[in-house]
Design a protein around this nucleic acid. Structure first.
Length: 154
DNA sequence: GCCAACGTTGGC
DNA sequence: GCCAACGTTGGC
């Protein structure tokens, strides 16, 4: 079944504009087991909303496609990386990720405040108070509704 | 296995 | 910059 996702990035580190310029990128650095488990569920061709976190305003700014899956995140082995994990080994990696490809930038972004107005925290995990996951599923009905509101073609 | 201390996330 | 929420670590 086709699933929809939401993936967070801080725009001063890596924004939807960066992804548009790069076309594709390896989504590395996720170091939370629950988020990693969602990454491992992703299938080629699925869509993910690009969410700007720690931003003004925070919200959904674009759309991308999952183009490569089940990749070992190389930054876990790189002692010079901020994402280095000394407990991870090449034989037993802990962290996997995907490659995402740019599809679209929102004609009108959906801010966190607007998401809170339209949806329920029980349905849309990103608006749950205290939520800290950087990779989250979005129920298909909500994904379609978000696409309609933001001018994105799923 | 418990839990206090600590670190990180991310909205405001 | 503050701080609440939450995950992880490590002593016991």
């Amino acid at each position: 079944m086709m699933a929809y996702w939401l993936m967070k990035s801080e725009p001063n580190v890596y924004s939807i504009e960066h992804l548009q310029r790069d076309s594709s990128t390896l989504w590395d650095g996720v170091r939370n087991y629950q988020a990693r488990n969602f990454l491992r569920q992703m299938q080629v061709g699925e869509r993910a909303f690009f969410y700007h976190s720690n931003a003004d305003p925070p919200g959904i700014f674009g759309l991308m496609e999952i183009t490569k899956i089940n990749l070992v995140d190389p930054s876990q082995f790189d002692a010079n990386s901020a994402y280095y994990d000394p407990k991870s080994t090449v034989d037993k990696p802990r962290w996997w990720t995907v490659v995402v490809t740019y599809l679209q930038t929102c004609t009108s972004p959906l801010t966190l405040g607007e998401l809170r107005q339209h949806y329920e925290p029980a349905e849309l995990l990103v608006i749950r108070p205290g939520n800290r996951l950087s990779v989250l599923p979005v129920p298909p009905e909500i994904a379609l509704d978000i696409a309609a509101k933001t001018g994105l073609n799923l």
